[in-house]
Design a protein around this nucleic acid. Structure first.
Lengths: 133, 133, 133, 133
DNA sequence: GTGGTCTAGACCACG
DNA sequence: GTGGTCTAGACCACC
């Protein structure tokens, strides 16, 4: 599910982080679902387990998953996502929005994008609920 | 006009890049306006000319300015601004929006933030136009 | 009475230890009271008896209970509680207090928290005494 | 200044973290002061640089220091200490206080300890101010 | 088998 | 010379 791009400027562990976070955010991994073990994911992506370990630690720190030594790592409920992460996201959102506005995009266009994104999010969460029936 | 923050995690040349890009994007530097020479800006910011040089090269590649050998560097017209920048910003915008929506923010709240940002932007662009009268 | 949290980073046997210690410390288990057998508690918590055994051994070493071969484990009188525990707690107390003070909290604010904690403690100990009437 | 204890249950990087945090908290390192480089501290403690690196990363994350790639790490002002750390400290404080109260210490005794700690903290910060005259 | 920690040693970007 | 990233491989605690 996660794809690595070695030509990407981002370090590998961040690509892994973003990939896993995306799985949680989109609902592909529901709260409590078990993530692949450090070693399993490492071998499946053909990278060093330490790199995966680092991504997991960082995601735990951000609140996207929790880890139980000897058991594995599990997706956390949304509520656990930490405040620093929320602040970082808002910063990123406002910053990119501001520059897009500078570049001539209108608030209306961006709002439209927002609503499309909202529909996608709702759709994905709906699918999950359906799947769990 | 450009302020460096040595406590910032971003490398210096990126801070310079962002500062210059902002000047072009906001219209503080109009198409054809001459940018300070590498050496002048370097001494004014008290940093190594190599660092400025690197920022200029990168900005030229992104389309924000063009350089004439022996003459200097000049702000590019907005139309020339590399589409890649717009695409990157849109990606960042949609990505952060999606995650904020997941975290429980509503499209309405985000739209409100957009409108506030738009008001700030309008203010700044107005100032620039006034100053150039 | 003991609740396990599998999402907790602490290993299970430590959660068991903390739970049992709390029962002794609060007086829910009075000196001489018999603790559940290793097997009974293990099955009641649905965990491995080895895990309970380890918790019991550790608590005995700390002085919170004593074991009579062939009879079972019993709560120790408060006086027997290992001084090491008190010292560890004091260390932790002073250390966190010092850092909180550094961060700008006043001794008065911390004292207030202490008094609230004292009121909660008194409440619990009262309940225990009532129940044992 | 930092002493490692290999018989301690805490991992090395946490001992390093605690040692460095203590230096910042007591004012031995004032905001902006440079910390020893990763490699220098590693060789001075005779441990692997990666272990130091991990401690530094974690402390940066908690807000006790900030790092500039290629320049080094520097003590942060108190204000930067992150909310998660404050919450963790309060939790630790209340928890140890509660158990000490259970064990028979009175709120008055603990308050006394608090005031002594406050005097020590004030003393250390005062020394620093004196030193900077 | 799981994650947690540590070491040794490598390469890169930055200034 | 500084920190940032990654690898390879080791040992431990926990279940």
């Amino acid at each position: 599910m996660i794809s690595l791009n070695y030509r990407d400027a981002r370090p590998i562990y961040e690509q892994v982080k973003d990939g896993l976070r995306h799985l949680v955010v989109t609902g592909a991994l529901q709260a409590g679902d078990k993530l692949p073990s450090v070693r399993a994911l490492a071998s499946s992506l053909a990278i060093n387990p330490n790199t995966i370990q680092r991504a997991y630690e960082s995601l735990e720190q951000e609140g996207y998953l929790y880890t139980v030594a000897g058991k594995g790592s599990f997706a956390a409920p949304q509520a656990d996502v930490n405040l620093a992460r929320r602040a970082a996201l808002l910063e990123q959102f406002e910053c990119s929005a501001a520059e897009l506005l500078f570049l001539g995009m209108t608030p209306e266009e961006l709002c439209l994008l927002l609503q499309q994104a909202a529909r996608r999010t709702a759709g994905q969460q709906g699918e999950e609920e359906d799947r769990n029936d």
